[in-house]
């Protein structure tokens, strides 16, 4: 049952990832709410889950020359410091607190998703 629910959670976020909405914003709450996974573990699963998914789509994007390396590398190089800081902070926080913090973050993103303007239609 747990395995089935895990696959289903992945399936759902996989579908949503393709739509440009971050899959993790669905996967992490699904894991903690339906499978009672610890918040840290759920976040770790999302990080791991990102590797194969990103690798596949990146392969296609690079082939189509859609990736702007000149911009990506400086942002990545400097941003890594942020990634170190964020990870360390996450790991020292208690799971219950991190879960609430994530909830607030999720709320903001849901809000943004609902109220942001539809750019595609605007440009056309």
């Amino acid at each position: 049952m747990k395995i089935l629910l895990s696959i289903l959670s992945g399936l759902l976020s996989g579908i949503i990832s393709g739509m440009g909405i971050g899959g993790g914003t669905i996967l992490i709450p699904a894991l903690t709410l339906f499978l009672s996974v610890n918040q840290h573990t759920a976040q770790g699963v999302n990080l791991l889950y990102f590797l194969p998914t990103a690798a596949i789509s990146l392969f296609v994007h690079i082939k189509n020359k859609s990736v702007n390396f000149k911009i990506a590398f400086p942002i990545m190089g400097l941003g890594v410091l942020g990634a170190v800081g964020g990870s360390l902070l996450a790991l020292v926080l208690k799971a219950a607190f991190l879960k609430k913090l994530f909830g607030i973050f999720l709320f903001l993103m849901g809000f943004y998703e609902i109220f942001k303007k539809n750019k595609k239609n605007q440009k056309k």
Partner: peptide, 16 residues
């Protein structure tokens, strides 16, 4: 857990 989730994720990616 990540492996099971990823299995669903790959399928979901295709469907998506």
């Amino acid at each position: 857990l990540a492996l099971w989730v990823s299995l669903g994720g790959v399928l979901g990616g295709f469907i998506g």
